[in-house]
Design a protein around this nucleic acid. Structure first.
Length: 565
RNA sequence: GAUUCCGUAGCUCAGCUGGUAGAGCAAUACACUUUUAAUGUAUGGGCCCUGGGUUCGAAUCCCAGCGGGAUCACCA
């Protein structure tokens, strides 16, 4: 990336030279023997304890021969105290007067050896005996400041910059680090819960020849050696079920899924789902399992089952309410979907002011009614059960009602967090459901599922009764950390690529470009005659210009021409 | 995709109905031996997102583009 350096960046490069000239390596190779962290020092105060710590220099308060500074390490910040005559006992005051006062910049990594003490105002600090530069920072950090009332000034808040330069966000905004610490705690707690239950973590393909297990538009890529298209997975469901067929009792996977759809504050093109499949269980068992799981995870992340999300207080304490989809629609619209035909459902939906069209089947219509009128009302964790068959092609038919499936979704704050089935294991039924999906596709539903023949073959060998559960991990962590947007819980959310920086031409390239610009187009040989540069210079210059799309070289009747693009 | 708001110094932002660029912090220099948004004095720092238009004159008004936010729509 080539662009003009700011005044401060030039200054920092100059100090870098001064440091080198003074015989100090600004990027030393040796390890630094850290023995202490900022918060540990503050929490277990021991007067006079010798410590060695390292981190970024985040503030400097210089008062002549004494100074205070703040060091930020992985845990937080601590104040350190510098005294000139202790750091430089002899005549040479360079370390303090030059290195510390002039050459260090905010953001530099330094190492400190010293003793713990309390200042007159009672702040736990480290009295520096020795310090060294560990790594020089060449770009100034944005520096928010907190005043006496705890108000933050000059906060680094622009979402674009925060997401594009998450490393800066993390350095400067400590609450951002917390979110990601909690995210990892959630994953660890969930893993622990599954492992304790005796289930096995597995890995299944990300590149799939048939993107199955969900209905969504996939990303397409190409395998050169096989010369076939491959798809980034939209779900891992069908592979985990193959493993159940293979004889595992319980398998789970944290799966990065990819969907080529819109992006907004709850959708990112790549996101993380957790799927778990357990044999010889049904969806009733899975509801019990899910509520215990989430109670456990919420406690592991926040120390309590309660969580705040915007205006809502949610409690993940088990058990959760269970409502059938039929009952839910009765509750919020007074309409009973039981036994109704497609036309009756369409008319009812229209009557509720819901937009419908001819491609919508029964399942889709019910889904629309539920989504429009009911979903948003479930703030506390609630299981919605028994979905219509049409919208659940991988789910077992309900034991009491052939129109329905044994499926539940867990709603929290009006949004789906988890989705689970008694898995369909009847291979003939499964084949028919896939064919039904094909018919929907022909009707114009561009999200209907593809048919995976190998998956059907696996089912034909026999899959034990199984229940499966999928959890949207990003959405769950949003609830547990009170963040309304998915970008806040992903380290690097998808962004449009940054604008290409303008090409900066050097003298030779500029000279070439100017000549061609005047002529518009000319023979390559003639152009080379006109300029005075070595063959090598000529070669690299012309290559830079063509590579950046400024000039092009064409061959007409065996004569090379150079022209403007 | 629709609506709406925003883009000015390294950071956060002001800049009125058009008159030629401002503050605080950060930076630089000097002073200062327990401060904590340290302080005091002085100094430097800008393609006002890009390109057009209106005008004697545009950061400001108009149009287009680029980038971003928010809301909505789409989305198992």
């Amino acid at each position: 990336m080539s662009h003009e350096l700011s005044e401060q960046e030039i200054q920092r490069r100059q100090t870098l030279e001064q440091i080198r000239n003074a015989g100090i390596d600004p990027y030393p190779a040796a390890l630094y023997p850290v023995t202490a962290y900022s918060t540990a020092i503050k929490n277990n105060f021991e007067e006079g304890k010798e410590v060695c710590l390292a981190g970024r220099l985040m503030s400097q308060r210089i008062m002549g021969k004494a100074s205070f500074a703040e060091i930020q390490d992985a845990e937080g910040r601590i104040q350190v105290y510098f005294n000139r005559d202790e750091i430089c006992p002899g005549e040479d005051k360079m370390l303090y007067n030059d290195l510390f006062k002039k050459w260090l910049d905010l953001g530099d990594f330094i190492g400190i050896k010293g003793t713990v003490f309390k200042t007159q105002v009672g702040e736990v600090s480290v009295h520096v005996k020795e310090f060294s530069l560990l790594s020089k920072s060449l770009k100034p950090l944005p520096l928010p400041k907190t005043d006496a009332e705890g108000k933050i000034h000059d906060a680094f808040t622009d979402p674009e910059l925060r997401y594009r330069q998450r490393y800066v966000d993390l350095v400067v905004n400590p609450q951002v680090k917390d979110i990601f610490t909690k995210r990892t705690k959630l994953f660890n707690a969930m893993r622990q819960f599954f492992n304790d239950a005796g289930y096995m973590e597995v890995e299944t393909p990300v590149l799939q020849a048939i993107p199955g297990g969900a209905s969504a538009r996939p990303f397409i890529t190409h395998h050169n050696a096989l010369d076939i298209p491959l798809y980034m997975r939209i779900a891992n469901e069908l592979y985990l079920k193959r493993l159940i067929v293979g004889g595992f009792d319980g398998v789970y996977e944290f799966s990065k899924n990819f969907r080529n759809e819109g992006m907004d504050r709850t959708h990112n093109p790549e996101f993380t789902a957790m799927e778990i499949y357990v044999s010889y269980k049904d969806y009733n068992w899975m509801m019990d399992f899910t509520e215990r799981l989430l109670e456990n995870c919420a406690t592991a992340v926040n120390g309590t089952t309660e969580a705040t999300f915007g205006a809502h207080n949610i409690n993940f304490k088990a058990p959760y309410k269970r409502v059938t989809m039929r009952q839910s629609i009765i509750d919020f619209t007074g309409f009973d979907i039981d036994g109704k035909s497609e036309d009756e459902l369409r008319a009812a939906a229209l009557g509720m002011g819901i937009q419908v069209d001819e491609t919508m089947g029964k399942g889709k219509l019910i889904d629309e009614i539920f989504g429009e009128k009911c979903e948003g009302n479930y703030i506390q964790p609630t299981f919605i059960t028994d979905y219509p068959k049409e919208m659940s092609p991988l789910c077992k038919t309900h034991r009491d009602n052939p129109e329905l499936t044994e499926r539940f979704e867990l709603m929290v704050c009006g949004k789906e967090v988890a989705n689970a089935y008694s898995e369909l294991n009847d291979p003939i039924d499964q084949r028919e459901r896939f064919e039904e999906q094909l018919r929907l596709q022909e009707k114009g539903d561009d999200e209907a599922m593809f048919i995976d023949q190998d998956f059907l073959r696996a089912l034909e060998y026999g899959m034990p009764p199984t229940s499966g559960l999928g959890i949207g991990m990003d959405r769950l962590i949003m609830y547990l950390t009170n963040n309304p947007s998915i970008q806040e819980v992903l380290f690097f959310p998808q962004m449009r690529p940054e604008k290409v920086v303008k090409v900066v031409l050097n003298e030779n390239e500029q000279q070439l470009f100017d000549i061609v610009q005047k002529e518009q187009s000319m023979e390559l040989a003639a152009l080379k005659e006109k300029v005075t540069m070595s063959n090598k210079q000529w070669d690299t210059s012309i290559k830079t210009l063509t590579k950046n799309g400024l000039l092009k070289v064409m061959k007409t009747n065996d004569v090379l021409f150079v022209a403007l693009v």
